[in-house]
Design a protein around this nucleic acid. Structure first.
Lengths: 327, 327
DNA sequence: ACTTGATATGTAACCGGTTACACATTATGA
DNA sequence: TCATAATGTGTAACCGGTTACATATCAAGT
């Protein structure tokens, strides 16, 4: 790789002049500019970002801290983040923490020492001193966060309500629910919303992690202990898929005997049989907004901490019975 | 953040001594070492990786170039890569290229100027000059690659054969196939293997991209034009899921009327109804091996170009009829 | 006692950029 | 015409590490 010095020599100017044309600042004569540009082209020069970083204290890097990219909710988020970061000339560093504070900590120091310009964090530990003492701009994503950290989330409570209302509207009378991991505030809100509308029409409820395997045993438990019910709301689409599978195993027909609503709106919901009715979060949009917000923070366009709350929508597929069409 | 100079002053030594204790090389007296360590602890010092990078020309960064993290095959790969990279003190930079050469190019220069230590590439364009002229160690993953680039792939041809043999063993006599994108060599081999065993028992075949939507229309076409068939091999699990969904729409019972085998072994296969029999690639293992290989290359442990071919296995679930159990 | 090698430490150059500052030249306005 | 501002360019300091090299001390070997 050519260096700025080589370019300077070839163009018969000083490194300062080369730097000026690269960054388009300061005064440069037309001839000098042309000579430099020719030299750059001839040498196929691209400035060393490490060197630039050292001086400017910016890296063009964004740290992305999420529990597990393997969880089907996160790839879309990551994609959105990477897309907009890239459009603005930033690269993203991927970190999987499995929600473990120790891992987060070690990533945090690694990212800090490489001078990332900002952080997008999907963590429950944002109130941890490790985060608080960081002077790096950051925004929390899909997580409710204690103090003065920016956040973008979607309206889980309303999503829960919407699920219950939909089930009720579709004629369900005996409701069931499988909630998510209880320490996830953002997931708990879905349950809260659902429960508030369901009231005493709730006949059974349990909890599960977001792994399919656990979801399957949770579904089995629910069927074993609380059947019959005719409307079920799952805290995410993976759990809903498990319910669907368990339903066919038990010859419970969906949606005739049991209507099911999932949560998230990931692609998996299209692939089940029948395709899953679900409460869709605007996942890509969430990633996009979080990144745009972070970029604003980095460029100091805005310093007032904000929480961005995005609306959810009902995606009606075939695990509920359409009213008005009266299938 | 504290700098090495501050540490040096506090410990009453020179920066060289601090550097020596940090890197554990050169001679350092016990007292000096202790003083430095105390100063480091007191100041919470961590060396600036950017500065170190500039001198050493290593960054601790690995570039991960893949088409689209949103495609459910890739998150596991990314996770494996990130896991082993992290275990060795490296961070990974995520790049989504959508298979577009222009995007790859722009990522390549970005990654190069930030001095990534290595590259894992999932691309069809490895024979492009952009890659060839790079002096960065790299390994291709899940892609067949022209010249002297290391690669790790799994045995697609054998996987295709295995799929056909399994279907035949399970009593299928009229075989169908939905192939993947034709420019993907690694996917084409699955088709080749399948076709070689199927021979003239093949009654119908079509192609599809790996998006669920397209797969669904491909499945419809196949049913429309070539039904009946009783054994189907799909080039990946997403396509297989589409076939399953289309089958229930047409009241075709799986596996009684039609047996289906997918390919990849992603988690989606567990979530369909019925759960999908599939040819499993050792996805995590592939990512792991690729990264370990890359790390060896980076550390110059080995310079002979290698192709690592990993075996695939049959994961028997419920879209095929178990022989010997005669369900 | 003197050479030699091991131990210990500091100074300064270097990595490849950016930019403050000095200096020179040219244009502008009174 | 002369002061002043705008334009153009180079030198060198700086960012925060690493390490070659110089220098010094001390123990061991002859």
């Amino acid at each position: 790789m050519a260096t700025i010095k080589q370019v300077a020599k070839r163009a018969n100017v000083s490194v300062a002049t080369v730097s000026r044309v690269m960054n388009n600042n300061g005064y440069v004569s037309a001839e000098a500019r042309e000579a430099v540009e020719r030299a750059i082209a001839e040498l196929d020069y691209a400035p060393n970002r490490v060197a630039r970083s050292l001086f400017t204290k910016t890296s063009g890097l964004i740290g992305l801290i999420m529990p597990d990219i393997t969880n089907p909710f996160f790839p879309q988020l990551a994609r959105a983040i990477e897309d907009v970061a890239n459009q603005h000339g930033y690269q993203v560093v991927l970190c999987n923490t499995d929600e473990q504070l120790a891992k987060e900590q070690s990533y945090l120091v690694a990212l800090q020492t490489m001078h990332v310009d900002g952080l997008i964090i999907t963590t429950n530990h944002s109130d941890n001193p490790n985060y608080e003492k960081l002077e790096v701009p950051m925004v929390a994503l899909d997580r409710i966060v204690k103090s003065g950290i920016d956040a973008v989330i979607s309206d889980g409570y309303e999503g829960g309500r919407l699920a219950a209302e939909t089930l009720l509207n579709c004629g369900a009378t005996r409701l069931a629910h499988i909630g998510g991991p209880e320490q996830l505030q953002t997931v708990k809100r879905r349950t809260d919303g659902f429960l508030d509308v369901a009231g005493d029409r709730l006949v059974g409820m349990t909890h599960s992690s977001f792994t399919f395997k656990e979801a399957l045993t949770a579904a089995q438990t629910l069927f074993d202990e609380h059947w019959p019910f005719d409307g079920l709301f799952a805290a995410n689409d993976v759990i809903a898929a498990a319910v669907l599978q368990e339903a066919v195993r038990r010859n419970v027909r969906v949606p005739q005997d049991l209507q099911v609503i999932g949560y998230d709106g990931i692609e998996l919901g299209e692939m089940t049989s029948p395709p899953l009715t679900t409460i869709s979060q605007p996942i890509y949009e969430m990633g996009r907004r979080a990144t745009e917000r972070l970029l604003d923070l980095i460029e100091k366009k805005d310093t007032v901490t904000k929480e961005i709350l995005l609306p959810v929508t009902l995606t009606e597929r075939q695990t509920t019975i359409r009213k008005g069409h009266d299938t």
